[in-house]
């Protein structure tokens, strides 16, 4: 150890001493280096059958593979985006059995037999889903990376309002929710758009909702 500010190194990895503050002496073994655990010879894999955008898909995946990575890396359906991989952004939103979820926080093997709808299943560039068309018309996107998640969420949000699922902004949670901009903003809040297209996205959803109604 050269100075009190330095850190001693033990055979177990990083050890702090009086690092930068007095409290640091309470840290016997800072975790810079994890204890290596002998890796398994071959990681377990399992077969899984999905129905993706109406088409059956049979995969054999590492048990660790998320639904998101199964879609993007195995099925090459890259429309579903990985923005954070931790359920903090919503870019990976897809619908499973009709409900929107973050596909990054779900294992593919947990979805055996499930029906998955991704952005690719909603429409094509030549034949846009009404929600996709509304996003184009109202410029409800900029860089485009959160956009598939926003659109999948938006489609699901309209269904959730119809199904009477309450939200945080309801004055009376016992009452049936009504379509309003406040409701849309709250329900869409799990989809972050750093480009800041929110105001336009709400316009797009309002138009798509009008068309649906």
């Amino acid at each position: 150890m050269d100075s009190p500010g330095d850190i001693g190194v033990s055979r177990r990895g990083l050890l702090t001493s009086g690092a930068a503050c007095a409290a640091a002496s309470a840290f016997p073994a800072s975790a810079s280096s994890k204890e290596p655990i002998a890796p398994m010879e071959t990681p377990p894999t399992l077969p899984v059958q999905l129905k993706v955008n109406g088409k059956p898909a049979e995969l054999t995946v590492d048990t660790r593979t998320t639904l998101l990575d199964a879609l993007r890396e195995h099925l090459h359906l890259t429309g579903t985006k990985k923005g954070c991989d931790h359920g903090q952004c919503g870019a990976c939103t897809v619908m499973v059995n009709g409900r929107r979820i973050n596909s990054c926080l779900s294992l593919a093997v947990m979805h055996d037999g499930d029906n998955v709808t991704t952005i690719e299943g909603l429409g094509t560039p030549e034949d846009l889903h009404p929600m996709q068309a509304a996003f184009v018309k109202h410029d409800g996107y900029q860089c485009g990376y959160c956009t598939p998640g926003q659109i999948c969420s938006a489609v699901a949000v309209l269904d959730e309002i119809k199904a009477g699922i309450p939200s945080h902004v309801a004055a009376d949670v016992a009452a049936s929710p009504a379509f309003s901009e406040m409701e849309i903003r709250e329900r869409m809040s799990g989809n972050i758009c750093r480009c800041g297209a929110y105001s336009n996205i709400v316009e797009a959803i309002r138009e798509a909702a009008g068309r649906q109604a």
């Binding site: 919503g90 929107r100 973050n102 699901a156 959730e160 309450p166 945080h168 329900r187 799990g190």
Partner: peptide
């Protein structure tokens, strides 16, 4: 419940 997380997370 509806004050927490997001619609996607609450579905799961």
């Amino acid at each position: 419940i509806v004050a927490g997380a997001s619609g996607q997370l609450r579905n799961k």
